[in-house]
Write a protein that binds this DNA or RNA. Sequence first.
DNA 1: AAGGCGGGGAG
DNA 2: CTCCCAGCCTT
Length: 387
Amino acid sequence: MSEALIKHFAKKLIAWHGVDGRQGLPWQSVRDPYAVWVSEIMLQQTQVATVLERYPRFMKRFPTIKKLAAAPLDDVLAEWAGLGYYTRARNLHACAKQVVEAFGGKFPSDTILLEQLKGIGRSTAGAIAAFAFHERAPILDANVKRILARLFGIEGTIQEKAVNDQLWLLAKKLLPNNAADMPVYTQALMDFGATWCTSRKPVCLTGIKRCPFAKDCQANLSDQVLVLPRKVIKAKSPEFDCDMLLLRHGDTVLLQKRPEKAIWGGLWSLPESEWRAKEKNLAGHAQRSEAYLTSKDLFKLVLPNEKTFTALKSCKPIERGLEIKHIFTHRRLWMQIWHVSTSDAVKLSGGDLQWVSLRQLGKYGLPQPIKLLLQALSLVRGDDLRS
DNA sequence: AAGGCGGGGAG
DNA sequence: CTCCCAGCCTT
């Protein structure tokens, strides 16, 4: 039973793709390894609908790997803003430099070499090798893990190394014999997982369409489709408070470049306090930042991390602006926005603080909630941030 | 092996 | 709300 499935899987899947696969995605018809690579990185943990909007923009902005490698990192981050997981953008830039310097701007076709490049792991290396070079290299993304766990009735969680090893072994065994089939086969795998063998509403349970593997699928035969692959119970995401300073001077706003390792790493954001564990009771209020007008019209904002913004003359009275709730995958953040304007721009000595013209904001990569905040306050139009 | 890292869509 | 996603990297 299992052996027959392994033998005919690729052929059946490709046949399925011919009828019910996704067609017309802009990166599907592409053979240029650079274009394939960009699409694979952008699609990591990011939905197709989002990438459909952003991929053409990125390719227009950075049409070749040499132009990407030669661009300032800040420009790449600005183009990536809103997509999340900004390490991808830094790695993309670093990888472009690697390929230009070590391989003359041409991606290697060998997965061993591909995996040594920044931001390219085993699965992405397989996808690039398959799509761009017709290599018989497997992928193992969330789609494939789910398909295989169900087809072969694999118990145990995906995190376990033994399970992961087993899945990679299966992925390799299922590859089509003909290397020329690798692009369509790899695409078919992704399409099948994304549209038919889905996590929550697989077609085998809806009864409308007939899964070509219904009679082979261990999960289907044992009524385990919805529980495979086994989920890991996740802890509730912790909650934080922080204060942010929206300081305006004329048509400029004060931005601060974020450290690379933090969340929104490398993006430009508002100066902020350190994050504090959110206190549900009022006792936590004592921890809040203090913002007040000092004598002689000097503005002073004292943040809990002891960073102090002072010596700003002629500030308008301090508004304690809106509080923004932002939800990450693993965190919840309440941002208290302190909206202040001054007629006297403070002289900036540090490199990470910068006055930025509102019209120039589009050149800066902003965290999505900050971008939305500035739009909501009509400080900037959507078009200005589209660049 | 576990945790960090965004954002948006689906249910 | 919760869960999920064309993962990778660091610890």
